[in-house]
Design a protein around this nucleic acid. Sequence first.
DNA 1: AATAGGCCCAACCGCACGCGA
DNA 2: TTCGCGTGCGGTTGGGCCTAT
Length: 336
Amino acid sequence: MGRIPCCEKDNVKRGQWTPEEDNKLSSYIAQHGTRNWRLIPKNAGLQRCGKSCRLRWTNYLRPDLKHGQFSDAEEQTIVKLHSVVGNRWSLIAAQLPGRTDNDVKNHWNTKLKKKLSGMGIDPVTHKPFSHLMAEIATTLAPPQVAHLAEAALGCFKDEMLHLLTKKRIDFQLQQSNPGQGNNTTVPYSKQDEKDDTVEKIKLNLSRAIQEPDMLPLNKPWESTGTRATSANFEGGCGVFPTSVTGYHHYGPSSFANEGGGSGSPWSQSMCTGSTCTAGEQVRSHEKLKDENGEEFQGGKEIKNATSIFNTDCVLWDIPSDDLINPIYREAFNNKE
DNA sequence: AATAGGCCCAACCGCACGCGA
DNA sequence: TTCGCGTGCGGTTGGGCCTAT
Protein backbone atom coordinates (compact mmCIF):
# COMPACT_ATOMS: atom_id res chain seq x y z
CA MET A 1 0.00 0.00 0.00
CA GLY A 2 1.16 3.46 -0.72
CA ARG A 3 4.09 4.43 -2.82
CA ILE A 4 7.58 3.37 -2.13
CA PRO A 5 9.69 6.30 -0.99
CA CYS A 6 11.72 8.03 -3.66
CA CYS A 7 14.88 7.01 -1.87
CA GLU A 8 16.13 5.08 1.11
CA LYS A 9 16.05 7.72 3.80
CA ASP A 10 18.73 6.03 5.87
CA ASN A 11 21.47 6.51 3.31
CA VAL A 12 20.80 10.02 2.11
CA LYS A 13 22.07 13.30 3.40
CA ARG A 14 19.55 15.97 4.22
CA GLY A 15 19.61 19.62 5.05
CA GLN A 16 21.68 22.40 3.60
CA TRP A 17 23.67 21.78 0.45
CA THR A 18 27.41 22.37 0.48
CA PRO A 19 29.25 24.14 -2.35
CA GLU A 20 30.92 20.83 -3.22
CA GLU A 21 27.56 19.15 -3.60
CA ASP A 22 26.34 22.02 -5.72
CA ASN A 23 29.38 21.68 -7.94
CA LYS A 24 28.93 17.96 -8.34
CA LEU A 25 25.30 18.32 -9.24
CA SER A 26 25.81 21.24 -11.58
CA SER A 27 28.64 19.66 -13.47
CA TYR A 28 26.82 16.35 -13.79
CA ILE A 29 23.70 18.03 -15.13
CA ALA A 30 25.77 20.15 -17.48
CA GLN A 31 27.16 16.96 -18.95
CA HIS A 32 24.20 14.63 -18.84
CA GLY A 33 21.11 16.72 -18.44
CA THR A 34 18.21 16.07 -16.09
CA ARG A 35 16.80 12.95 -17.60
CA ASN A 36 16.28 10.73 -14.56
CA TRP A 37 16.43 12.36 -11.17
CA ARG A 38 16.56 9.06 -9.34
CA LEU A 39 19.78 8.14 -11.06
CA ILE A 40 21.40 11.54 -10.92
CA PRO A 41 22.58 11.47 -7.29
CA LYS A 42 24.07 8.00 -7.73
CA ASN A 43 25.85 8.87 -10.93
CA ALA A 44 26.97 12.25 -9.66
CA GLY A 45 28.38 10.78 -6.49
CA LEU A 46 25.93 12.52 -4.20
CA GLN A 47 24.40 11.07 -1.08
CA ARG A 48 21.12 12.81 -1.77
CA CYS A 49 17.78 11.58 -2.94
CA GLY A 50 16.72 12.43 -6.46
CA LYS A 51 13.98 14.65 -5.28
CA SER A 52 16.35 16.71 -3.21
CA CYS A 53 18.64 17.07 -6.23
CA ARG A 54 15.76 18.14 -8.41
CA LEU A 55 14.67 20.78 -5.94
CA ARG A 56 18.18 22.07 -5.50
CA TRP A 57 18.59 22.35 -9.24
CA THR A 58 15.23 23.87 -10.06
CA ASN A 59 15.13 26.26 -7.12
CA TYR A 60 18.72 27.34 -6.86
CA LEU A 61 21.32 26.03 -9.28
CA ARG A 62 19.63 26.52 -12.63
CA PRO A 63 21.71 29.06 -14.56
CA ASP A 64 18.68 30.97 -15.77
CA LEU A 65 17.50 31.77 -12.28
CA LYS A 66 17.29 35.31 -11.01
CA HIS A 67 18.49 35.79 -7.47
CA GLY A 68 17.84 38.78 -5.28
CA GLN A 69 15.10 41.29 -4.66
CA PHE A 70 11.81 41.21 -6.49
CA SER A 71 11.22 44.33 -8.53
CA ASP A 72 8.08 46.43 -8.19
CA ALA A 73 6.90 45.15 -11.53
CA GLU A 74 7.37 41.57 -10.43
CA GLU A 75 5.48 42.23 -7.22
CA GLN A 76 2.63 43.80 -9.13
CA THR A 77 2.50 40.81 -11.42
CA ILE A 78 2.41 38.41 -8.50
CA VAL A 79 -0.38 40.29 -6.76
CA LYS A 80 -2.44 40.60 -9.90
CA LEU A 81 -2.02 36.99 -10.90
CA HIS A 82 -2.66 35.81 -7.37
CA SER A 83 -5.97 37.63 -7.45
CA VAL A 84 -6.82 35.54 -10.50
CA VAL A 85 -5.44 32.09 -9.78
CA GLY A 86 -4.79 32.08 -6.05
CA ASN A 87 -1.95 29.97 -4.72
CA ARG A 88 -0.99 28.52 -8.09
CA TRP A 89 2.63 29.41 -7.57
CA SER A 90 3.93 27.54 -10.53
CA LEU A 91 1.50 29.34 -12.83
CA ILE A 92 2.46 32.68 -11.36
CA ALA A 93 6.15 31.87 -11.54
CA ALA A 94 5.75 30.97 -15.18
CA GLN A 95 5.02 34.65 -15.83
CA LEU A 96 8.17 35.75 -14.05
CA PRO A 97 11.26 34.71 -15.97
CA GLY A 98 14.00 33.52 -13.67
CA ARG A 99 11.75 33.08 -10.66
CA THR A 100 10.67 29.76 -9.24
CA ASP A 101 7.42 28.82 -7.64
CA ASN A 102 9.27 28.52 -4.35
CA ASP A 103 10.61 32.07 -4.74
CA VAL A 104 7.19 33.44 -5.50
CA LYS A 105 5.56 31.52 -2.69
CA ASN A 106 8.13 32.65 -0.14
CA HIS A 107 7.96 36.24 -1.30
CA TRP A 108 4.20 36.19 -1.11
CA ASN A 109 4.11 34.67 2.34
CA THR A 110 6.80 36.88 3.82
CA LYS A 111 6.25 40.23 2.12
CA LEU A 112 3.28 40.67 -0.16
CA LYS A 113 0.66 39.23 2.14
CA LYS A 114 1.69 41.66 4.82
CA LYS A 115 1.79 44.53 2.38
CA LEU A 116 -1.77 43.87 1.31
CA SER A 117 -2.98 43.39 4.85
CA GLY A 118 -1.30 46.63 5.78
CA MET A 119 -3.27 48.29 3.04
CA GLY A 120 -6.47 46.88 4.49
CA ILE A 121 -6.88 44.34 1.74
CA ASP A 122 -7.56 40.70 2.34
CA PRO A 123 -4.69 38.91 0.56
CA VAL A 124 -6.90 35.93 -0.17
CA THR A 125 -9.91 37.58 -1.76
CA HIS A 126 -8.07 40.78 -2.73
CA LYS A 127 -10.99 42.73 -1.35
CA PRO A 128 -10.90 45.35 1.38
CA PHE A 129 -11.53 44.04 4.84
CA SER A 130 -14.29 46.63 5.08
CA HIS A 131 -16.07 44.75 2.34
CA LEU A 132 -15.81 41.51 4.27
CA MET A 133 -17.09 43.25 7.37
CA ALA A 134 -20.08 44.55 5.46
CA GLU A 135 -20.80 41.07 4.25
CA ILE A 136 -20.73 39.69 7.76
CA ALA A 137 -23.28 42.19 8.94
CA THR A 138 -25.57 41.91 5.94
CA THR A 139 -25.49 38.27 4.93
CA LEU A 140 -24.81 36.21 8.01
CA ALA A 141 -27.97 36.80 9.92
CA PRO A 142 -28.95 33.25 10.95
CA PRO A 143 -27.86 32.52 14.49
CA GLN A 144 -26.58 29.11 13.54
CA VAL A 145 -23.71 30.68 11.64
CA ALA A 146 -22.45 32.64 14.60
CA HIS A 147 -19.32 30.54 14.65
CA LEU A 148 -18.37 32.02 11.30
CA ALA A 149 -18.02 35.40 12.90
CA GLU A 150 -15.97 33.94 15.69
CA ALA A 151 -13.71 32.23 13.20
CA ALA A 152 -13.44 35.46 11.28
CA LEU A 153 -12.26 37.25 14.34
CA GLY A 154 -9.54 34.71 14.62
CA CYS A 155 -8.46 35.07 11.01
CA PHE A 156 -8.68 38.81 10.67
CA LYS A 157 -8.22 39.97 14.21
CA ASP A 158 -5.48 42.46 13.52
CA GLU A 159 -7.07 43.89 10.43
CA MET A 160 -10.46 44.11 12.08
CA LEU A 161 -8.95 45.82 15.05
CA HIS A 162 -7.48 48.43 12.80
CA LEU A 163 -10.63 48.93 10.82
CA LEU A 164 -13.14 48.82 13.60
CA THR A 165 -11.33 50.81 16.19
CA LYS A 166 -9.73 53.44 14.01
CA LYS A 167 -12.07 53.87 11.11
CA ARG A 168 -15.53 52.53 11.51
CA ILE A 169 -16.03 53.70 15.05
CA ASP A 170 -14.94 57.18 14.13
CA PHE A 171 -17.43 57.05 11.34
CA GLN A 172 -20.17 55.79 13.63
CA LEU A 173 -19.54 58.60 16.03
CA GLN A 174 -19.76 61.08 13.22
CA GLN A 175 -22.86 59.62 11.64
CA SER A 176 -24.97 58.41 14.53
CA ASN A 177 -27.92 60.51 15.62
CA PRO A 178 -27.09 61.90 19.06
CA GLY A 179 -30.72 61.66 20.12
CA GLN A 180 -31.16 58.05 19.09
CA GLY A 181 -29.90 55.48 21.51
CA ASN A 182 -27.80 52.76 19.98
CA ASN A 183 -26.74 50.19 22.46
CA THR A 184 -24.32 48.50 20.09
CA THR A 185 -22.15 51.47 19.36
CA VAL A 186 -18.81 50.88 20.90
CA PRO A 187 -17.55 53.83 22.90
CA TYR A 188 -14.09 54.49 21.61
CA SER A 189 -11.05 55.32 23.58
CA LYS A 190 -7.41 54.43 23.35
CA GLN A 191 -7.72 52.39 26.48
CA ASP A 192 -10.60 50.41 25.06
CA GLU A 193 -8.66 49.71 21.94
CA LYS A 194 -5.78 48.46 23.97
CA ASP A 195 -7.66 46.42 26.50
CA ASP A 196 -10.87 44.91 25.28
CA THR A 197 -11.59 45.83 21.71
CA VAL A 198 -11.58 42.25 20.58
CA GLU A 199 -14.13 41.31 23.19
CA LYS A 200 -16.33 44.22 22.22
CA ILE A 201 -16.13 43.34 18.58
CA LYS A 202 -17.08 39.79 19.38
CA LEU A 203 -19.97 40.94 21.53
CA ASN A 204 -21.32 43.33 18.96
CA LEU A 205 -20.93 40.91 16.13
CA SER A 206 -22.68 38.20 18.10
CA ARG A 207 -25.51 40.55 18.91
CA ALA A 208 -25.86 41.58 15.33
CA ILE A 209 -26.03 37.98 14.25
CA GLN A 210 -28.38 36.86 16.95
CA GLU A 211 -30.71 39.81 16.50
CA PRO A 212 -30.96 40.32 12.77
CA ASP A 213 -33.73 42.87 13.18
CA MET A 214 -31.33 45.30 14.70
CA LEU A 215 -28.94 45.14 11.81
CA PRO A 216 -30.25 48.18 9.94
CA LEU A 217 -29.66 50.28 12.99
CA ASN A 218 -26.09 49.19 12.97
CA LYS A 219 -25.21 49.85 9.39
CA PRO A 220 -24.09 53.43 9.32
CA TRP A 221 -22.66 52.90 5.87
CA GLU A 222 -26.17 52.22 4.61
CA SER A 223 -27.27 55.82 4.57
CA THR A 224 -29.69 55.47 1.65
CA GLY A 225 -31.57 52.51 3.04
CA THR A 226 -30.39 50.17 0.33
CA ARG A 227 -28.47 47.02 0.96
CA ALA A 228 -24.90 47.70 1.86
CA THR A 229 -22.41 46.95 -0.86
CA SER A 230 -18.70 47.03 -0.91
CA ALA A 231 -18.85 50.17 -2.99
CA ASN A 232 -21.02 52.23 -0.72
CA PHE A 233 -19.45 50.84 2.37
CA GLU A 234 -16.08 51.69 1.08
CA GLY A 235 -17.10 55.03 -0.27
CA GLY A 236 -19.12 55.95 2.77
CA CYS A 237 -16.37 55.20 5.17
CA GLY A 238 -13.66 56.49 2.96
CA VAL A 239 -11.42 53.86 4.38
CA PHE A 240 -9.81 52.77 1.14
CA PRO A 241 -9.01 55.05 -1.69
CA THR A 242 -9.86 53.98 -5.16
CA SER A 243 -6.23 53.63 -6.02
CA VAL A 244 -4.31 52.39 -3.09
CA THR A 245 -0.75 53.71 -3.20
CA GLY A 246 -0.55 53.36 -6.94
CA TYR A 247 0.89 49.97 -6.31
CA HIS A 248 -2.09 48.26 -7.78
CA HIS A 249 -5.54 49.36 -8.69
CA TYR A 250 -8.18 48.27 -6.24
CA GLY A 251 -11.09 50.45 -7.15
CA PRO A 252 -14.81 49.83 -6.76
CA SER A 253 -14.85 48.06 -10.09
CA SER A 254 -12.68 45.44 -8.52
CA PHE A 255 -15.64 44.28 -6.50
CA ALA A 256 -18.20 44.24 -9.23
CA ASN A 257 -18.65 40.48 -9.21
CA GLU A 258 -19.55 40.13 -5.59
CA GLY A 259 -22.10 37.54 -4.67
CA GLY A 260 -21.57 35.66 -7.88
CA GLY A 261 -20.06 32.19 -7.67
CA SER A 262 -20.77 29.15 -5.58
CA GLY A 263 -18.64 30.18 -2.64
CA SER A 264 -19.00 33.64 -1.23
CA PRO A 265 -15.89 35.68 -0.75
CA TRP A 266 -16.58 35.21 2.87
CA SER A 267 -16.49 31.45 2.72
CA GLN A 268 -13.44 31.67 0.55
CA SER A 269 -11.77 33.72 3.19
CA MET A 270 -12.82 31.30 5.81
CA CYS A 271 -11.35 28.36 4.00
CA THR A 272 -8.12 29.91 2.83
CA GLY A 273 -7.75 32.69 5.31
CA SER A 274 -4.57 34.63 5.17
CA THR A 275 -3.57 33.88 8.68
CA CYS A 276 -5.11 30.46 9.04
CA THR A 277 -2.89 27.45 8.95
CA ALA A 278 -3.69 24.67 6.59
CA GLY A 279 -4.88 22.62 9.49
CA GLU A 280 -7.23 25.34 10.54
CA GLN A 281 -8.41 25.68 7.01
CA VAL A 282 -9.17 22.00 6.82
CA ARG A 283 -10.93 22.06 10.14
CA SER A 284 -12.87 25.12 9.14
CA HIS A 285 -13.75 23.50 5.87
CA GLU A 286 -14.96 20.35 7.54
CA LYS A 287 -16.86 22.31 10.13
CA LEU A 288 -18.68 24.34 7.55
CA LYS A 289 -19.60 21.27 5.62
CA ASP A 290 -20.75 19.38 8.67
CA GLU A 291 -22.73 22.05 10.38
CA ASN A 292 -24.25 23.85 7.46
CA GLY A 293 -24.70 20.88 5.20
CA GLU A 294 -23.19 22.81 2.36
CA GLU A 295 -20.33 22.01 0.09
CA PHE A 296 -17.65 24.61 -0.12
CA GLN A 297 -14.95 24.52 -2.70
CA GLY A 298 -11.70 25.11 -1.04
CA GLY A 299 -8.01 24.54 -1.19
CA LYS A 300 -6.15 22.17 -3.38
CA GLU A 301 -9.03 20.19 -4.77
CA ILE A 302 -9.98 22.76 -7.37
CA LYS A 303 -7.81 21.54 -10.17
CA ASN A 304 -9.63 22.10 -13.43
CA ALA A 305 -9.17 25.22 -15.46
CA THR A 306 -12.71 26.49 -15.12
CA SER A 307 -12.46 26.34 -11.38
CA ILE A 308 -9.14 28.08 -11.42
CA PHE A 309 -10.54 31.01 -13.28
CA ASN A 310 -13.94 30.98 -11.67
CA THR A 311 -12.99 33.63 -9.18
CA ASP A 312 -14.81 36.71 -8.11
CA CYS A 313 -11.59 38.63 -7.85
CA VAL A 314 -11.45 40.89 -10.81
CA LEU A 315 -8.10 42.38 -11.56
CA TRP A 316 -8.16 41.97 -15.25
CA ASP A 317 -6.06 44.93 -16.17
CA ILE A 318 -3.07 42.98 -17.35
CA PRO A 319 -2.74 43.30 -21.10
CA SER A 320 -3.11 39.79 -22.43
CA ASP A 321 -0.23 40.38 -24.81
CA ASP A 322 2.04 40.80 -21.83
CA LEU A 323 1.35 37.32 -20.63
CA ILE A 324 3.93 34.71 -21.34
CA ASN A 325 1.83 31.73 -20.44
CA PRO A 326 -0.79 31.01 -23.12
CA ILE A 327 -3.13 29.62 -20.47
CA TYR A 328 -3.32 33.05 -18.94
CA ARG A 329 -3.77 34.73 -22.29
CA GLU A 330 -6.72 32.52 -23.08
CA ALA A 331 -8.25 32.99 -19.67
CA PHE A 332 -7.87 36.73 -19.79
CA ASN A 333 -9.32 36.94 -23.25
CA ASN A 334 -12.28 34.81 -22.25
CA LYS A 335 -12.90 37.01 -19.26
CA GLU A 336 -12.93 40.09 -21.44
C1' DA B 1 26.62 41.61 25.99
C1' DA B 2 23.13 38.28 26.22
C1' DT B 3 18.99 36.51 24.80
C1' DA B 4 14.38 36.05 23.20
C1' DG B 5 11.48 36.60 19.41
C1' DG B 6 10.57 37.41 14.63
C1' DC B 7 11.70 37.07 9.86
C1' DC B 8 13.26 34.90 5.82
C1' DC B 9 14.18 31.30 2.76
C1' DA B 10 16.05 26.81 1.50
C1' DA B 11 14.62 22.37 1.93
C1' DC B 12 11.45 18.77 2.95
C1' DC B 13 6.98 16.24 2.84
C1' DG B 14 3.16 14.16 0.90
C1' DC B 15 -0.27 14.08 -2.53
C1' DA B 16 -1.70 14.16 -7.35
C1' DC B 17 -1.02 13.58 -12.07
C1' DG B 18 0.90 11.89 -16.49
C1' DC B 19 2.97 8.43 -18.93
C1' DG B 20 4.62 4.12 -20.36
C1' DA B 21 4.86 -0.85 -19.80
C1' DT C 1 -7.27 -1.27 -17.73
C1' DT C 2 -4.03 -1.39 -14.18
C1' DC C 3 0.11 -0.49 -11.97
C1' DG C 4 4.46 1.58 -10.99
C1' DC C 5 7.54 5.24 -11.66
C1' DG C 6 8.97 9.95 -12.33
C1' DT C 7 7.79 14.43 -11.75
C1' DG C 8 5.10 18.63 -10.45
C1' DC C 9 3.06 21.15 -7.01
C1' DG C 10 1.52 23.46 -2.73
C1' DG C 11 2.01 23.40 2.18
C1' DT C 12 5.03 23.17 5.99
C1' DT C 13 9.28 23.10 8.62
C1' DG C 14 13.70 24.23 10.48
C1' DG C 15 17.66 26.80 11.00
C1' DG C 16 20.32 30.91 10.30
C1' DC C 17 20.20 35.75 10.63
C1' DC C 18 18.48 40.09 12.37
C1' DT C 19 16.47 43.09 15.70
C1' DA C 20 14.56 44.62 19.91
C1' DT C 21 14.84 44.45 24.79
